[in-house]
Amino acid sequence: MDERSQKLIAGAMAITLSLVYLFLLVSCIWKYAVTGDITNCTTELVLIILIPAAIGWFARKDESLLIPRMFPTGQELPADQSPPAKKRRKKYYFLDAIGLAAIFLIFAILDALFIQKEWEYFVFSPNWSKTTNIFFTYASEFFLGVIIFFAIGFIWSEWNIRRYHRKLKELED
């Protein structure tokens, strides 16, 4: 296979994979919405996790994959260790964390409204109304999500940036 064929096939495979990924997402959401049971989506969920993991594994020699990117644009964050770059990265980890926590919150609300058809909540105070307790349950879930996603994003991305700089140093030597 020559260079031209390889490029064409790589492009075709990327488009096919994107379509498969989209199909898996839609299929998973549809199955869950219809049946209300997440175990019906096990195959889709496993593939949704496995596909990017496999791509990452086979492309692991590409150092640029270590650099954190903005969600959803995929634009690279500054990878240097200067204070402004660190500050900018932290800002984006925070925004990513808010975005992810918001997505989870929306799914939780949609799940309660249309699938479970009941609100699961923690009774913070028996003196509060049910609505107030529900509000504080979802608000606390959101804030906890922000903290957890920020911590994961920060630790994982900063560790990858250190690995990236180590590799660059090796290539410089």
């Binding site: 150092e63 640029s64 590799k167 660059l168 090796e170 290539l171 410089e172």
Partner: peptide, 11 residues
């Protein structure tokens, strides 16, 4: 190109 590409070329 990326800096690492130059590194890989040199090696």
């Amino acid at each position: 190109v990326r800096r690492e590409t130059i590194g890989h070329l040199e090696r």
